[in-house]
Design a protein around this nucleic acid. Structure first.
Lengths: 350, 350
DNA sequence: TTGAAAGCGATACCAA
DNA sequence: TTGGTATCGCTTTCAA
């Protein structure tokens, strides 16, 4: 009521009482009805035990009578806490990411956060633009997929001084915290697997995805070290689907690959390759073995002939979420680099 | 500079100049550097053509020098426009919804909105709680999946006076706008298809999902009208996957269904059923025909034996987005009920 | 345990 | 075309 000298914004003369939009109940409305001050209502909502139980009751009654819904824009602006976490993923169309999001979201929901998704896989908008749009909502924390960001992005993200978790990869120098696994070690491990199992011919079938190509490079490098000569490579565009797995293997076979181990950059490609192999009457895994990546659970017992490199995504998501929460709460982490590892799952049944 | 009588909140004596958190550049910082008022900077950002080009240049320079990132909490609070749209989907783990989100998001992104996702498929939290959490961010619009909401939800949503689009279903009495198709007509159409094609035995394989069961009921009702007697039904839990399709068909066959048409509530189930049928040496579609629902594109030419009921999801998503934008902009709609229909895609090749 | 007042960082309204 | 001032709805700080 202080100085409403000219009350410029009120459509009706009765300042402080009339709503501008005419809508939305505010804390003040609730406070008035409950006969307390606004701050008491705020406390009743945020720290119920800091309010006398009788007061609490009055307030709760007023809240349900008015149908009050808090305004987190105002709350976030005042408190600088939005209870919003943004997760940036390449694409939701890729099941692997869609699922990871879920594992990641669960602990956050339980901790009272909402997750806002940002998809970075759109060529029409730069990652820079996306990050900027995201930061303008002032999230309490951000989850990033991968560790390769443009210099501009790094600058923006660091300047925001927000807890950050990078995932799906590993680096000794994370922006803040990284929870993932080493694509380099993974590629090398697959090469070792191929050699250990005695495959003379090795083929790679990779999506044109940064991390997939990185794994492939590590795989090829290790194969070279180990003296494997007969190598064929095929690349397919993202997003990967069964069709591309089929045509990818077809290309490899037409190029002269006659049997051995096919290393696919995703389980979807591996499944597609399996379909093609069967269509051509090749015995899998006897004549032609296939190993994928990701461990898509639904495939497990329908494609028993496929091996895969399993990433424990539920655990990765959970660790990432917990690391983020810890950083937000200012709790220290044992290490800013968390390696969740990988496991080669070999299947030799038909 | 007006009345900073006691400057309670400033940690340093130099009020108006010192930042509380020490971070985040504000509009005021930019304005000072550019030598203009805050409102001019605001205009430079939001309505660039309402500002002299020389001023605009100064402002832009100041913005990039300071690395200013707008605060949409403050902006949204003041303008009552958040440029945020919330989409509520049952689950992202279901590809069909994950994809629909994408079709829906594209036009919105182009129009300058961000999409916040809410998953309603969590039994631990009521839809009511979810809607409340969503409303507290004051989105400019909401997309809902389905038309069945609890009375409390309807009240909350309507009280918010926000543009609403329901989708994936149809109703003569939408909350605001509905863009979808009739599950009832769809079920009946599948029944007609079965009869027209001369199948004597019909089986249903449905997920325990509200809309799936509704389609099934319509299908069964119509079959009864048409005098089809030999009917078997199997229900599987959500989420549907290939495995459940397999076991579902296995159950139907073990129950005495010997061949005819199997109507599945999703393409995933249909694919699983196909795998089981082949494993049992049944010729599809000659001995046993299968029809799915949804038209998952990746299946199209890998499972040529499967028929499906296609929903034009790209179109549905786009129409929903455009309807929402129209409502937000206050533009009138031809009708609040938009039927996108469905198409039965029959495949008879092997 | 409760409250008064001053912000949080932007935009709207009106005036210049 | 530009600027002053009040305000959006909430939380923080400090005081009672």
């Amino acid at each position: 009521m202080a100085h409403t000298e000219r009350g410029k914004r009120q459509p009706t003369p009765d300042a402080k009482t009339a709503r501008r939009g005419g809508d939305s109940v505010t804390l003040e409305d609730v406070a008035r009805l409950a006969g307390v001050s606004t701050i008491t209502v705020s406390r009743a909502l945020n720290y119920p035990d800091k309010v006398a139980s009788k007061t609490l009751e009055k307030v709760n009654r007023a809240i349900s009578q008015t149908g009050y819904v808090p305004n987190l824009l105002a709350g976030g602006l005042a408190s600088r806490r939005t209870r919003l976490i943004t997760a940036i993923v390449p694409s939701l169309a890729n099941m692997v990411y869609a699922e990871t999001i879920q594992y990641f979201s669960k602990p956050l929901r339980d901790a009272g956060y909402q997750v806002l998704l940002g998809e970075s896989g759109y060529p029409e908008a730069s990652e820079q633009t996306l990050v900027s749009a995201i930061l303008s909502r002032r999230p309490d924390g951000i989850l990033l997929t991968g560790v390769n960001h443009s210099a501009d992005c790094r600058r923006l993200l660091l300047a925001a001084r927000i807890p950050l978790v990078e995932t799906w990869d590993l680096t000794p120098t994370p922006l803040d915290v990284v929870v993932g696994f080493s694509h380099e070690r993974l590629g090398a491990a697959v090469a070792d697997f191929a050699v250990r199992k005695g495959y003379r011919q090795v083929a790679t079938l990779s999506a044109s995805d940064r991390r997939a190509k990185f794994r492939e490079a590590a795989l090829l490098g290790r194969l070279a070290e180990l003296g494997i000569q007969e190598i064929s490579c095929a690349e397919v565009p993202v997003p990967t689907d069964l069709r591309r797995g089929r045509s990818g293997l077809a290309r490899l076979l037409d190029q002269g690959f006659t049997g051995g181990l096919v290393c696919c950059s995703s389980d979807t490609l591996a499944q597609g390759a399996l379909i093609e192999a069967r269509a051509r009457g090749l015995h899998v895994p006897q004549e032609l073995a296939i190993i994928g990546f990701g461990d898509q659970s639904f495939a497990a017992d329908l494609y028993p002939a496929l091996s895969t490199v399993r990433i424990d995504r539920p655990r990765m998501g959970e660790l990432a979420a917990n690391a983020l929460i810890a950083r937000i709460d200012g709790r220290p982490l044992d290490s800013p680099v968390i390696d969740v590892g990988f496991t080669i799952i070999e299947r030799e049944t038909t």
